[in-house]
Simulated scan of single mutants.
Amino acid sequence: MEEQEDQNTLTLDKKINTLPPKNSLIFKLLQHLPLKKEAKVLEIGLSSTEHLSYLLQKAENISYSGTYINEAAIKEAFSTDEADGNAIELIKKTDHQLDFEDNSFDFCFTANTIYFWPDPLKYLTESYRVLKPEGKMNLAFVEKNFGGDLPWTQLDFTFYEIDEVKSFFKQSGFANIEVNKLTETVTDQNGKEVTKPFIMVSGQKK
């Protein structure tokens, strides 16, 4: 696939200080990635780099690629991270296409991004394309019956039911589709810890 003109790639080869996993959605999702030595991993919609240290300590010599939109936020966070010999690549994206060859990754994951995808089926079809055979896709999201009524999600968010997301996976070609209902703990604006439910849908490339 041809490279997009607005693509911006950042690379890093320093040492990351590992941190214990947090009780948040992205860390819960990573705990369900069965990474092995020299796995090639893609994250769609990277919004921060705080979880990379935990990801990279899950197995030896992981190669990580992450696509992002908010360049300023990523550059600020990225400059403080170090990689300890792992290959890290961050790529700026503005559309649903992934500028990678077919069958490039062992795992693909994304958290809290499906609400903003103009066409979820296209994103998942692209994820399927770049995964290797038997590669796995994990997608975490807050379902419609919980997130749809929140006052700050009324304008730019599109929420989905579990069956809708499962259908996207199936139409994209994924098999062995699984659904896990999990929770995360976050701190609200008053400083109180709140437990929130979320869904993780997983699929495997045939």
Rank of each mutant, 00 (worst) to 15 (best):
I91N: 10
S79N: 13
S104Q: 03
Q4M: 07
A59L: 09
E38P: 02
N61R: 11
T183C: 11
G147R: 02
E184W: 00
L42V: 01
F159L: 06
K122N: 09
K28Y: 02
P197L: 08
S63I: 12
K36P: 03
N176Q: 12
D149S: 08
K58A: 01
S24D: 07
I199A: 05
D84E: 11
L98M: 09
M200Q: 10
Y54V: 08
F27E: 01
D163Y: 09
T49R: 00
E2R: 15
E71Q: 14
V179I: 05
S79W: 02
D13I: 09
F116K: 00
R129E: 09
Q4W: 01
D102V: 15
K40L: 02
V41F: 00
Q204H: 07
S65H: 04
D84K: 04
I162E: 12
K166F: 06
E38R: 13
G191N: 05
H51L: 12
G191C: 10
Q31L: 11
Q154M: 11
Y68V: 01
E71M: 09
K40A: 00
N180Y: 02
Y160P: 01
T9Y: 11
E5R: 14
A39Q: 12
Y115R: 11
E5T: 11
A111T: 15
T110P: 00
T67F: 09
L10Y: 14
Q171A: 13
T9V: 15
G135F: 01
T195V: 12
N138M: 12
C108L: 15
L25I: 13
D119Q: 09
F107M: 06
H96V: 10
P151L: 03
Y160L: 03
D6L: 13
K75D: 11
P151Y: 08
E134H: 15
K75R: 13
D119F: 05
L46T: 13
C108F: 10
V194F: 04
N70C: 09
N145F: 12
S47D: 09
S53W: 04
E50F: 06
L19Y: 13
W152C: 00
G45A: 07
E184A: 03
S65W: 04
Q7H: 11
A83H: 10
L90A: 08
A87Y: 06
N23P: 00
G135C: 06
K206Y: 07
E82L: 15
E2N: 14
P133C: 11
E38L: 08
K181W: 08
E193R: 12
Q204D: 12
L98A: 07
G148Q: 06
F141K: 01
E82M: 12
T125R: 04
K170T: 14
T94F: 04
K205R: 13
L42A: 03
Y54T: 03
I88L: 11
V41M: 03
Y64A: 02
S104W: 03
V142S: 06
M137G: 01
V165T: 06
L124F: 14
D84T: 15
H51G: 06
Y123I: 05
T153L: 10
N190C: 07
L121F: 09
E161N: 11
E60A: 13
I114T: 02
F168S: 01
L131V: 03
Q154W: 04
K93L: 12
K192E: 11
F157P: 00
I91Y: 04
D156M: 07
I69F: 10
L121A: 10
L131D: 01
D81K: 08
K22E: 15
T125Y: 06
V186F: 07
E101A: 14
N138R: 14
A83F: 10
N70D: 15
N8T: 15
P151I: 04
T18E: 14
